[in-house]
Amino acid sequence: MGKTKKLIELDDKAIEILEKQAKLEKRSLKNYIEYTLEEQAVRFSEPSEAYKAMMDDMIDRDENGTLKTHSWEAIKAQYGR
């Protein structure tokens, strides 16, 4: 797979935060930003096998009438909101 260079501009505060995170992971800022963006791109590309299996199970249970759902209002009431 090829590589493409892009010039990005980030707020000074964002750079400061990212530098701290990079140091915690013993990475350079550049490496940390590249790694983080590549990981995020992978998450956007396709759902994981575990997620697909979970969704297939939920669809099956919905079609069989065994899926239990709760309204948002019921959930808020249960947790005192």
Rank of each mutant, 00 (worst) to 15 (best):
M1L: 05
K5I: 13
L7G: 12
L7P: 11
I8N: 01
E9W: 11
L10K: 02
L10E: 05
L10F: 03
D11W: 02
D12R: 07
D12K: 06
K13D: 10
A14C: 11
E16Q: 13
E16M: 10
I17R: 14
K23C: 08
K23G: 08
L24F: 10
E25C: 12
E25S: 10
K26F: 06
K26A: 11
K26R: 15
R27F: 06
R27N: 09
S28L: 04
L29K: 03
N31T: 14
N31P: 12
N31H: 12
N31W: 13
E34D: 13
Y35T: 14
Y35G: 13
Y35L: 09
T36L: 14
E38L: 12
E39L: 07
A41I: 09
R43G: 06
F44E: 08
E46L: 08
E46T: 13
P47V: 07
P47L: 03
S48I: 00
S48K: 03
S48Q: 10
S48C: 01
A50P: 05
A50W: 04
A50F: 06
Y51H: 08
A53G: 01
A53E: 07
M54L: 13
M54G: 01
M55I: 08
D56K: 06
D57F: 02
D57E: 09
D57V: 06
D57S: 12
I59P: 01
I59C: 00
D60E: 10
D62I: 10
D62R: 11
D62F: 09
E63D: 05
E63L: 11
E63T: 11
N64M: 04
N64L: 09
G65W: 00
G65R: 00
L67T: 00
L67E: 02
H70N: 04
H70W: 09
H70M: 15
S71K: 01
E73W: 09
E73V: 07
E73P: 04
E73L: 09
E73R: 04
A74K: 10
I75Y: 02
K76E: 12
K76G: 01
K76A: 03
A77P: 03
A77K: 15
Q78W: 10
Q78I: 11
Y79F: 07
Y79E: 05
Y79A: 05
G80K: 06
R81M: 12
